[in-house]
């Protein structure tokens, strides 16, 4: 029993992580305090990172934790801490589109899930990924050979973001001064 469990540990863990990610994501909708929502999001991201790791794409898992949790969410948490906790938006959680929004979201999920069930019923699983195809080396080589233009464009995008952020800050300074 235990041995069988161990043999299928990968799969079990995968399902476990998936369930946890889903629950955390659902909590994001429900929780009132932004800080808690942020923590729920972080937990979702961490579980997703686990899933990536189980799928064998370790560097994506690493990036998930580094960039999302390490950079994006830290930024977000700071923003939350900067802002006033007594804001009315903190008490009244939901907008007036609560019911239609949830209905539409569920319909969205149902539509896609139905399509998924229909389309993927006859598709055999791709089998375990060839570890080589997802190594960091192949990835880096692909980026610098095949996708170098995209890679460069991301740097342009980042520069643009930095400039934009600076511009926004300037606007705020001017307003104050």
């Amino acid at each position: 029993m235990i041995e069988r469990l161990l043999a299928n540990l990968d799969t079990l863990l995968l399902y476990l992580f998936a369930a946890c990610a889903f629950v955390s994501a659902a909590l994001m909708i429900v929780l009132a305090q932004p800080m808690r929502v942020a923590l729920a999001l972080i937990s979702t991201m961490v579980f997703l990172g686990g899933i990536y790791g189980l799928l064998g794409v370790h560097f994506i898992a690493a990036f998930q934790v580094l960039i999302y949790v390490g950079a994006v969410m830290v930024f977000m948490v700071y923003a939350i801490m900067l802002l006033d906790v007594r804001d009315p938006a903190y008490q009244r959680r939901y907008s007036r589109y609560l019911v239609p929004g949830i209905l539409a979201g569920v319909a969205f999920f149902a539509a896609l899930a139905w399509g998924l069930a229909r389309e993927f019923a006859d598709v055999a699983e791709g089998g375990p990924a060839a570890g080589g195809a997802f190594g960091i080396q192949q990835f880096a080589a692909a980026f610098l050979n095949e996708y170098w233009l995209h890679f460069e464009l991301t740097s342009v995008l980042l520069v643009a973001a930095v400039v934009a952020a600076l511009a926004v800050i300037n606007v705020s300074r001017r307003d104050r001064g």
């Binding site: 889903f22 539409a104 899930a113």
Partner: peptide
């Protein structure tokens, strides 16, 4: 799909801009 749908629902139903 579920994560995407939950995110979408969140955008529609939550009041807080940060959320």
């Amino acid at each position: 799909v579920a994560l995407f749908a939950l995110g979408m629902i969140g955008v529609v139903v939550r009041r807080n801009v940060l959320v």
